[in-house]
Design a protein around this nucleic acid. Sequence first.
DNA 1: AAGTGTGGTTACTCAAGCGTAACCTTACGC
DNA 2: GCGTAAGGTTACGCTTGAGTAACCACACTT
Lengths: 219, 219
Amino acid sequence: MSRYARKVSSTPTFKRLPRAVREQQMLDAAVRVFSRRGFHAASMDEIAEAAGISKPMVYAYLGTKEELFVACLHREGTRMTEAIAGAAAPDLDADERLWRGLRAFFGFVGAHRDGWAVLYRQARGSQPFAGELAAMRARLVEVVAGMLDHALRARGREVSATDLEVVAYALVGASESLADWLADHPEADPEKTATRMMNVAWLGADQLLRGSTWRPPQQ
Amino acid sequence: MSRYARKVSSTPTFKRLPRAVREQQMLDAAVRVFSRRGFHAASMDEIAEAAGISKPMVYAYLGTKEELFVACLHREGTRMTEAIAGAAAPDLDADERLWRGLRAFFGFVGAHRDGWAVLYRQARGSQPFAGELAAMRARLVEVVAGMLDHALRARGREVSATDLEVVAYALVGASESLADWLADHPEADPEKTATRMMNVAWLGADQLLRGSTWRPPQQ
DNA sequence: AAGTGTGGTTACTCAAGCGTAACCTTACGC
DNA sequence: GCGTAAGGTTACGCTTGAGTAACCACACTT
């Protein structure tokens, strides 16, 4: 007699599902639990239960807790980046592209309020995920910087790569910040938030594109 | 004979220090360790060792791990807010105040690179600390919003509280984002970063203050 | 009908690390 | 010089939860 007890599964109870389906269910559950509890406080048991499956299956398909979190981050991140990229076609004017990109971004966050936003917030801190996150942000920054660069060249001007990067970084940061605000204000309208962001971003960027700069007083 | 072994402390080895001093040493150590490892991966043992003291003393003075983290956050947060508040005297023009505030902010972050920035990043995610962090940010947002409001009234204009809050939120977010960038680029100059931020922020804000707005195309 | 691989389960192990009980010792007020 | 509180230590206990070993069963080939 083995030391493991046996259970006669009198009822075959539930459906067997193909791996791809189960993986998505698990990711859905993981995103919910990680969001509500935070990475640290979330337990694999709870995630498994929320997914309606047993823990070893989670390990079998998605690996360790960290790997699972990275998988969540990756899925959500890809969805978001695609939503934005799909909206901001490269053949439009700079302001039109920026506007559509922002609208897509805030629309996405609004639709995934407690999903994406909290995941994203989580990832900023803990080293293991910082890399994954940094890569996502880097793509966004690159896109924005490219946009600005394009607009500048169209006006016959040129700016150092670092300057562009920093401005892009600031714009992305401002957007993230407003995304947090949006996630915390369930009544707020994503579209309106996008307009507000556009106001801040474009009016500033527009000035910069025109060549005006602010200089510190008397050194 | 007790079950605890005794050690004849042949050498009285090290100095006894008053509580206030030890607390600061512990906080210094905690900030370093939390920064390097992250809240989750940091262990109380390591913090105690880094502080050159034994674990029970940490518990005796600063309480549980969470309480310790909050204490770190609180100390660093207070230092920062005071640095900013001290720099941005309320009797100056809006742009001058903004400039000095930003300079103080980036100066602080530059000086505490791996101290403050990572602590701050940590706190964003995990629920227990979100409150503490939110309070800090709320103060900053309030200050910025107040500044904008003041400048607007001086020009005889008025804007809804929500609009102000959102713009302030965006500016604070952009600054935080650049602070992250600064923390990740050891060679970068805080002063220059502040100037860059000022360019983005002020040129945009200035336009807004003048009354120009961006509107979405054909609804 | 036997064989195999994929989907599934229960019931563990085992390390990490928070928090503490019990005990020592020196400074200082009285 | 003596009591006591404040500063300090060692050596645990005990929970939590990540990760796994061992087994089950159905759906398919062949």
